[in-house]
Write a protein that binds this DNA or RNA. Structure first.
Lengths: 340, 340
DNA sequence: GCTACATTATGAACCGTTTCATGGCGCAGG
DNA sequence: CCTGCGCCATGAAACGGTTCATAATGTAGC
């Protein structure tokens, strides 16, 4: 009945007092109940209920040092690609009774830093990061200080940091090759900033393929940087392109959300897909196949990316860094091909 | 140059020693730099860099007691509805320099409990929860112990806990009313378990509307509980329904992901939508309008839900609990109506 | 030269756990 | 009866920060 002082949470000492035992015993009840006589244990448990005691995680961790949580920092929590990866991570972590906390950097380096620091300061076992910048020096520093780091969805430029990625250059090639095969010679690429490695790599792949086909990227390719990597960004970019007058015959979008915005806009503007403009997306999210014009997209093994990343992190900080690279595949549908 | 012992992170004491000052001074440099002479400050900062010191968040928090982080526990991190809400939360938190950690309960009460405990033990300012069960006694307990709690997407049955919800009974009514207006008299409702309040409420709304129209729910309505609240769940459920032989003329899905699975399956099976079977979803996610058969759906103000919830949490633990209830709207499209 | 006061730096107390050396106690074996 | 051992419970040290009363030093005013 008698609660401890107005706003202070009950501590282990309060419980000990209430149960008439020492703090050590309460701690034992909490952590190694088998070492405590059943009678004593019950008294302590009663006191815990009575005071509705909740362990102070900070104190616990301060002393014990470790915690079975890992953090994930993704670019955009509203992008199904990243959340599918997150589900893969969760599935793997669950097996080892680890927990996952997800944070979203919103492509912003300072937000990424902030969450990174937060995770590190709180002593998580490790962090999986989709970096918002090309420079990963800050991640190396975290790694050096003993926190596990796995790069998500982008290859590591450093041998000491593990990564699970998909070959984005190849992805760009696949998309470009397909559009070339369909007869397009003027392609717009609605891309994100090149500071995001995936964007730079996909661009590189596209250019490579154009050059291989004997085209001059300077004329055959127009790259537009979207304001945000989602449907709104796609919509704004395609509108700009349409208003500019010289409309390309094909649009390659850096992800399916951007493609969604493009398709939406083209439909509103009564521009036929793929007849007037072909559209290719990236990620092959769940709804891509069900759109009014089913979306051609570059598929990545999302779930598997998450699982492997968690694998690597759980291998522990002393395991040798590994660099997993998956290959993307192209899924052709109606948005880019009459046959699709 | 001389790093501290092999695997121990540098502590404030190490920094103090290296800089030739006391620990108190280091702490001041960290927290109130203006109180430290520039010269001293620089020496300390140099030592911090040198030792690549990172504050121990647990120790800091143990003493300081507070932390500017809030947690969110949603049912499914891969559901755009929840991540849109999360973005709303983030946007609001950002203004007050709070950070958000998201966890996914996967509809599982024990996972919800686990994350809840994790958040509470680590002393977050508050938690926003989409409860996986009808019983929220455990949330009340958290609240009583001084951690802020806001119910997300479901009304609070308790006056002491704030909530930001959308009228789900009304949502069910809107969907049912619409299908009745379209002439359907045998409706399948692919629903989640009634332990999830939203599911129970939407069911109630459907039944209400059927009764109001003079129909007997026992014959006019068949409720099927999906195995999971996503496309796979929807697919499995509709397959079961098709195989059972007596196919209803309309399917109402508890969310748009389930509806996506249904649409996908119906297309594969060459069943015309809405001619053979009408489909209505819930949430009006971004892609709903762009599907091959644009999806009729009950729209909820996702972003606004997140913003308001964060508002309430940031009001502090002593503010009076508030119960915000938004009204859903029906967006009619081609999946349920020829005119849509 | 002395006092009053402002500015900086100090170091010990404290936060709430876990851990571990220590001690009390009962019991079996000799 | 004594020894040795196993079982429980104890209480203090330790984790790494923050905070605060206090000390040291410098400066201004009289």
């Amino acid at each position: 009945m008698t609660q401890p002082a107005a706003h202070r949470r009950a501590s282990i000492a309060d419980v000990a007092r209430a149960a008439g035992v020492s703090v050590g015993t309460v701690s034992n009840v909490l952590n190694r109940p088998e070492r405590v006589l059943p009678g004593t244990r019950e008294r302590v448990e009663a006191a815990i209920d009575e005071l509705s005691f909740v362990r102070n995680g900070s104190a616990r961790q301060l002393r014990a040092g470790t915690i079975t949580t890992v953090g994930a920092i993704v670019l955009d929590i509203a992008n199904p690609f990243f959340t599918d990866v997150a589900r893969g991570i969760e599935e793997r972590l669950d097996r080892d009774d680890f927990t996952l906390m997800v944070a979203s950097s919103d492509d912003k380096p300072d937000r990424e830093q902030r969450y990174l620091r937060l995770f590190e300061e709180h002593g998580v076992q490790g962090v999986m990061v989709v970096p918002a910048t090309d420079d990963i020096e800050h991640l190396l520093a975290v790694r050096r200080r003993g926190t596990g780091v796995v790069l998500l969805d982008r290859p590591s430029s450093d041998p000491s940091i593990s990564s699970v990625a998909v070959d984005d250059v190849r992805g760009g090639e696949l998309a470009a090759r397909h559009l070339l095969d369909e007869g397009h010679t003027r392609i717009a690429f609605l891309n994100g900033p090149h500071t995001i490695r995936q964007c730079a790599d996909r661009y590189e792949g596209v250019v490579k393929e154009l050059v291989a086909a004997g085209l001059d990227p300077a004329t055959a390719l127009v790259e537009i940087t979207v304001s945000s990597l989602n449907a709104e960004g796609g919509e704004a970019a395609i509108r700009g392109l349409l208003e500019s007058g010289d409309r390309p015959t094909a649009v390659f979008c850096v992800n399916d959300l951007v493609a969604l915005g493009v398709l939406r806009t083209l439909r509103t503007e009564n521009i036929a897909v793929p007849a007037d403009v072909a559209v290719v997306g990236y990620d092959d999210v769940a709804f891509a196949a069900e759109l009014s014009t089913p979306l051609t997209s570059v598929r990545q093994p999302t779930h598997e990316i998450g699982v492997r990343a968690a694998d690597l992190l759980l291998d522990g900080p002393d395991a040798a860094a590994e660099h997993v690279m998956f290959q993307p595949t192209l899924v052709v549908r109606g948005s880019s091909s009459a046959v699709g």
